[in-house]
Design a protein around this nucleic acid. Structure first.
Lengths: 215, 215
DNA sequence: ACGTGTGAACCGATTCACAGCA
DNA sequence: TGCTGTGAATCGGTTCACACGT
């Protein structure tokens, strides 16, 4: 149960803060690459639609990371954020459903920044099983319950058609998956300790369409 | 400026409510297909991770749509929701960037429910321009500023690499696009009247990875 | 009696206003 | 002085508790 001081801080951390920490880290990496050494809260938030106060408050949940009157050292801040987010360890991810969307995600370059690695892929299509895409061998879904626990994978992406998503999700839970990124347009009914994030592209677009027409 | 009574209601409607309305409609369509005529708030929310009160409050922004002590007629409720969301008109959408993710979206079946229609596609790759995918002819990005206003398109999806997203977004604004669904992992800096929704798959996964490891 | 509809209380997250330190 | 760090005020949204209509 030993933890470092920062993780012991008792104040509850808003979910939205966590999501922004990864955005901060991505920007810091780009700024570093561009040769920058230091940055102000007002500079970093130019790349985000938030205020400098928001940024500073987000960091304040984890302690002080800047110099008053000066700003933030990019290396120091980046490594703090990497520690908070746990990026020192690669996160292994499974993906279920290698259709068009699934294979787009297999090839998605943006996971690299965060050391997120899709390391196994499953499908039911006999034409795909056994083939290797993007360096990942596609396995039969029936092997999921063996492979996922064996590789100690805790996070999965669901890109199967809506009608199979619930069933797949339950199977994933039985494999001891703790977090699911769900692209199927259904809400999953799972034990409440399982973390689910839905990416519902149609409803996002529909919401935009509504708001555009009302303005 | 004439509008029907429901749209005139002055109470401000939460953004999250709008997003849920489309989820309700999708479920109602499925229930209708399954032969159901009526539904209770407690039934519909079994398919969503929200409470019946949330559902009823969402509807209450637009007026009363159920019968007290009885529940909701599915046809009536569906057509109310379709009216609110403006689904009687097809929404035309442009997509910019026909890489793996862009072509997955071109083929995505889930837009049909909401009469969202991707009706033009743009890319810079000479190997793709002029080809027809999923019934849509891929055009050169240089034609964007002509085609989008001509077709009176107000919503666009950005699936270009991060480094081009800002430039493309600005060009879209000059085409009188009002809403953007952005899949590039950067925040777009645009006039505040332009509606932007970001879908950042890496940061969603990173957030899950954080939360999984902290539990 | 039963399920809807809704103001009031509550909660989480953002914004404000300013204290603190280089 | 300038920018960070942070309690206090505020805001948007959810949950509660109950009045209402059938």
């Amino acid at each position: 149960m030993e933890q470092n001081a920062k993780q012991d801080i008792k104040k509850k951390i808003p979910f939205e803060t966590i999501k922004r920490l990864s955005l901060y880290l991505r920007i810091l990496k780009h700024q570093k690459q561009a040769g920058k050494e230091n940055i102000l809260s007002s500079e970093i938030t130019k790349y985000l639609n938030i205020t400098p106060e928001q940024f500073r408050k987000d960091l304040s949940y984890f302690g002080s990371m800047g110099k008053k009157g000066v700003g933030y050292n990019i290396d120091l801040l980046s490594s703090n954020l990497e520690n908070i987010l746990g990026i020192y360890d690669e996160s292994k991810i499974a993906i279920i459903g290698i259709g068009k969307l699934g294979s787009a995600l297999l090839a998605y370059p943006g996971f690299f920044d965060f050391r997120l690695k899709i390391c196994c892929a499953f499908d039911t299509d006999l034409g795909k099983i056994g083939k290797t895409w993007e360096g990942i061998k596609i396995e039969d879904i029936s092997k999921m319950t063996a492979i996922i626990p064996e590789q100690n994978i805790k996070i999965a992406i669901i890109t199967v058609p809506a009608e199979f998503a619930q069933e797949i999700a339950e199977k994933l839970v039985s494999c001891d998956i703790k977090g699911i990124l769900n692209f199927a347009p259904v809400d999953l009914n799972l034990p409440k300790e399982i973390l689910v994030r839905n990416v519902d592209m149609a409803s996002e677009l529909m919401t935009l369409a509504y708001m555009v027409q009302k303005i």
